[in-house]
Design a protein around this nucleic acid. Structure first.
Lengths: 332, 332
DNA sequence: GCCGGATGTGGATACGTTTTCATGAATCTC
DNA sequence: GAGATTCATGAAAACGTATCCACATCCGGC
C-alpha cells in the first residue's frame, strides 16, 4: 500500500506552469536549441517553483543510452582496487556521472555475466580490469560501447585504450635491487592476470645473467587463501630461496604471514619486495620495501579517458616507484 | 561516426519472428501471466534465435523505477567500507541487481547531492552509511524510496531499518579489558558519526567508577590525515595516558604510526585496542588487539533487507568480538 | 511591398517495455 | 446442451523525454 499519491512532476507540468510547450522546456533545460530570454526566464522560474528534476528514465529511453559508467573489478576488498575505484569515483562524481560497480572475482564467467548486465542497462561506458580473453569482450564492442581497460591490457584487443603501470620497469627495478644485494634465487609470487609482470621478471633475470628457475615462479588466484597457500607452499618446497617479489599487496601480505608462521625471518632469512604501497607496509615489522603503484591516479585517468568520448586515445602507462624500507637485506 | 547501423533487437522483432503479439512475448519472458506451452515454446525459441535481451530502459520507464540498489558510503579506500561493499555486492549480484555506488567523504552536502542523483535516476532502494542529519533524508522518503542505514543509525529516523554493530557491548568489552589491566587514563580516538560509541565509552567508564576525562575523547574526520593529526595531538597533549581505544582501522593505523614517530612503545608505554579487525593487524608489531566487526556480513544483511521490499523490518544488531593479540599490557 | 532567410515556438512522434482491457475459444457445471 | 467460468491472446495505452518538422513572426535587402 503506497501512501504517497503524489505523481512525479514532469516536464509537462513545467510547460503548463510556464505557459509554453514541452519542447521549449526541454530545450531551455538541456541548453540545446534557441529560446528567447523572456521564455527562458519563465521556464526556469516555473521549474524552480515546482522543484522539477528531469527524469533520467525518460531521457535514457529517448537517447537510447544510459549515462554514467560501469566499473568492473576483481575484488573491492583488495585495497589496490579500492584506491582505483576511488579514483574513478572522484572523476565521475565531479562530472555528475553515476557509477555502476561489479566484482568479477577474476572469473571470466562472472565477467561475461556482468558485461551482459551492463548491455541490458544500455550503459555505454565501461572501465574494466579484464580477466577474460579478448573474445569475451566481443559482444560489448559489437554493441558499440566504449571500453577502457585498467591495470592490465587484454591480448587480442591491443587497440582498446588502457591505463596500466609500467610493469617492465617496475619489475626490473625490483630485480636489480635484489640482485645488487647478492640474491640469485629470487621467487616471484604472482597472481593470474600478471602475465606481463612474469614476462618482465624473466627478462630482468636474463639481462642480469641469472638463470630462470621456473619453480620459483608461482601463480595464485586473487584471494587471501590462495595467496597464502602459494606463499607457504613456496617456502616449504624451496627453502633455499633468498628473496621474494610479491606481485600485489595480497600476495605480500601472504608472504609476510607465511614467513611468520614458518619462522622465516625478514629480512635475515628472506628479503621481500611487494608490489603496491599500502599504509600498513610502514607499520609492518620490518617495514616493507615496495614498488608503489598510482592506483587512485589510474582510476582517475581511466575515467577521464572513458568520458571524453570522441577522441580515440592510445594507452596510458603510469610510472612505478621503488620505496626502500627495511624488508630487504644482503644474501645470507 | 557510428559504424554499426544494426538496431537493437526489440520485443517487437521477437513477436514478429514468433508470430505472436508483443504482449505475449512480454508475458512469457517476464514469467507473469499465462501462456500455452506451444506459444511459450515458440517465443522462447525466437528469443534465443535472435539473441534477444530485454532493454532495461523500456522496462524502467514503464515501471517508473530503476532496478538495482544505490550504495552510499563515506570512503571506499577504508577497508571496512570495502568489506561492507563486498557484502552488498555479493547479495545484489546473486539477485541479479546492479549496484550504483557513491562516496560521500562524510560530507552532508555531497550526501545530499548523491541522494538527488539517485532520485533523478529513480533508484528505489538505497543502502547508506549516513552522515547528514535526519532532515537530509526528507526528500528521499517523500519520494517513497526504501532506505536501509548501515553502520550507524541517524537521529530522528529511528523507524528506518538499519544494520549496525553492537557498539555498546563492543566498547564495554574493550574498556573492561583495559581497566582489568589497570588502566585508568584511557583515550578514545573517534570519528565523526560515532556518537553512539562515544556515549557507550562514557557509560562504560562510569560503570567502572573511572572518572570521564573529556580531553581524552578526540574526534577526527574520516581521512588518514585527520586521523593522524588527532592521534599525534593526543599523544603530545596528554603524555600521561596509558591506553587508547581507536574507533576504526584508520584511527588505529594512525595511532600506531604516531606512536612510532613519537617513540612511544606499544604495549609498554601505551596499550592499544582498535575497532575493526583487518588483515594487517596480525602483521603489525606487535600484533594488534582488536574488536572485530562483521563488515561484509553487515553489507550482505543490509542488501537482503533492502531487497525484500514488502516487509517492514526492524534494525539488526550484529555482535562484535574481542580478539586479544599483543598490543595491550598492564599499566606501567 | 515583396521575398528569403533567420529565429522562436509548439505539436507530434518515437524510444521499448509492461499492463489493462476486450475478445474469442475452450472447458466446466447442472 | 445452455449458460457460466476460465484461459489464451493481441491491440492499445502509458511512462517522460528529446528531436524532427512545420508554422509563424520578424528583419533586412532589393
Amino acid at each position: 500500500m503506497k501512501v504517497n499519491g503524489q505523481r512525479r512532476t514532469t516536464i509537462k507540468d513545467v510547460a503548463e506552469a510556464a505557459e509554453v510547450g514541452v519542447a521549449t522546456v526541454s530545450r531551455v533545460l538541456s541548453g540545446t536549441g534557441s529560446a528567447s530570454p523572456a521564455t527562458r526566464e519563465k521556464v526556469l522560474a516555473a521549474a524552480a517553483r515546482l522543484d522539477y528534476r528531469p527524469s533520467a528514465l525518460g531521457r535514457n529511453l529517448r537517447r537510447q543510452r544510459t549515462g554514467g559508467i560501469g566499473l568492473l573489478i576483481p575484488d573491492i576488498t583488495d585495497t589496490f582496487y579500492g584506491r582505483l575505484t576511488d579514483g574513478v569515483l572522484a572523476c565521475a562524481q565531479s562530472a555528475g556521472e553515476p557509477v555502476m560497480i561489479g566484482t568479477t572475482g577474476d572469473d571470466p564467467e562472472r565477467e561475461a555475466e556482468l558485461i551482459g548486465s551492463l548491455l541490458e542497462e544500455s550503459v555505454e561506458r565501461v572501465i574494466a580490469v579484464p580477466c577474460g580473453d579478448g573474445e569475451m569482450w566481443g559482444p560489448a564492442f559489437r554493441a558499440g560501447l566504449s571500453v577502457v581497460f585498467a591495470e592490465r591490457p587484454v591480448q587480442g584487443r591491443e587497440n582498446v585504450p588502457s591505463v596500466v603501470t609500467d610493469d617492465r620497469t617496475g619489475v626490473r627495478t625490483a630485480v636489480e635491487y635484489l640482485a645488487g644485494l647478492g640474491h640469485r634465487r629470487i621467487a616471484f609470487l604472482s597472481r593470474h592476470g600478471q602475465a606481463q609482470r612474469v614476462r618482465a621478471f624473466r627478462e630482468a633475470l636474463a639481462a642480469l645473467g641469472v638463470p630462470v628457475d621456473e619453480e620459483l615462479i608461482v601463480r595464485a588466484h586473487a584471494t587471501r587463501d590462495s595467496a597464502y597457500a602459494a606463499a607457504a607452499g613456496l617456502y616449504q618446497h624451496r627453502p633455499d630461496l633468498t628473496a621474494v617479489l610479491a606481485g600485489g599487496n595480497l600476495l605480500g601480505e601472504a608472504a609476510v604471514l607465511a614467513a611468520k608462521e614458518l619462522d622465516f625471518r625478514i629480512p635475515r632469512d628472506i628479503s621481500l619486495i611487494m608490489f603496491d604501497d599500502v599504509p600498513w607496509a610502514e607499520l609492518c615489522h620490518p617495514p616493507l620495501t615496495v614498488i608503489s603503484q598510482p592506483a587512485q591516479d589510474m582510476g582517475y585517468r581511466a575515467a577521464e579517458l572513458v568520458l571524453r568520448e570522441g577522441r580515440r586515445s592510445r594507452t596510458v602507462t603510469l610510472p612505478t616507484e621503488l620505496i626502500v624500507r627495511g624488508s630487504c637485506g644482503p644474501r645470507r
